[in-house]
Design a protein around this nucleic acid. Structure first.
Lengths: 201, 201
DNA sequence: GTCTATATTCCGATAGAC
DNA sequence: GTCTATCGGAATATAGAC
């Protein structure tokens, strides 16, 4: 389980798992210590407090995922290619770590403090670039006239929401984890064709 | 503030507000007592324990919202009418209580215990009825052939996700609450036309 | 650096007077 | 029914030996 990681690495790995599963308020330092296979006192030796440890984990998790979203409209591809790429890559990745989206969204809801705002302001999506591309491809007659924010919300909603609602979906449909993943695999094409057809002229 | 409600009503009102804002793990009995303007001991006098109080609140909140969702495909209208009605009514309602969706989804994630499953099994959506309507309208040449679960997920994702991500959206775009509500007003048409165009033949 | 033991704070729950 | 005071346990955090 622990291989030959340093103690600090073991703590971070355990803390990520526990915080993702239980959230800041629900997680116990004892849970993290047990998961890491070490003593509770070590957590404070390395990270001083529960809050400090959490902030590091949150910064890592959010700092890894938000850029993926922000980069949707960064590259130099056509809009259609960007949308298709995003849907496939995002779903492929989050299938591996399905609790990340609700973890991030929930913690933002519960603790909308300053450090959160800073985290986001440093990663403002290139909205202007996206707007320009929309205008350009509209003039070229490739796509319809669309509201940028609504389009962005459509893509994010369709890709992310199923993960946020995963337990509810499984309860209602009776699916197991594998069934859910297969459904999400199918969903890559579903979402990208839905979006593209909605803006294609 | 408290008007002439009974003590029990004051407690329930306060508990709903605090639990919605902080979740089960983050809420304190003291917070609820303060919000209700009464003493902490009264909470136990009326509801015995924090857990009992929470379960009552959760059952009320979920019991009020889930049937709305389940009823999407209950009525006798055409599919197009159902979708349009749902988008408008759901968004109108949740604008009034924007934290309900993430509250429900988060608690299901954190505590997928038996009482949750029961709550849902009592409210199984009429999937079969929906499937039949899809087949029928498909044969009549009104709509394309579609995957029922994917269609359902599309509608729910597009309507619900923006509320789940509301704080993040506001931070990123710089919107205030009013701006968000205006955007959601616009979104009623955005979502229903997007969905309907995707299945219309 | 790692552990055991302990301090300290916080919080859910109860006892008991009114 | 409502309050004050307090208990008892749990959780974060620290002290100190090794």
């Amino acid at each position: 389980m622990d291989k030959d990681l340093t103690t600090e690495q073991k703590i971070l790995e355990a803390a990520r798992k526990i915080f993702l599963a239980k959230g800041l308020d629900g997680a116990r330092m004892q849970d993290i210590a047990d998961e890491a296979g070490i003593n509770k006192a070590m957590l404070h030796y390395y990270f001083r407090s529960k809050d400090k440890l959490f902030q590091q984990i949150f910064a890592e998790v959010a700092g890894h995922f938000l850029p993926k979203i922000m980069a949707i409209f960064e590259s130099e591809k056509t809009l259609f290619e960007k949308i298709e790429t995003f849907c496939h890559e995002y779903i492929s990745q989050v299938v591996q770590t399905p609790y990340v989206p609700i973890f991030i969204l929930n913690e933002i809801n519960r603790h909308p403090e300053e450090f959160l705002k800073k985290l986001f302001r440093n990663q403002m999506p290139p909205v202007q670039k996206m707007v320009k591309q929309l205008e350009k491809e509209n003039e070229q007659g490739i796509i319809k006239k669309v509201e940028p924010l609504q389009l962005l919300l459509n893509v994010l909603s369709l890709c992310i929401f199923p993960f946020v609602a995963k337990p509810m979906i499984q309860i209602i449909t009776g699916m197991d984890g594998t069934g859910f993943n297969e459904m999400m695999e199918q969903r890559k094409r579903e979402v990208s064709t839905l979006i593209i057809n909605s803006i294609k002229k």
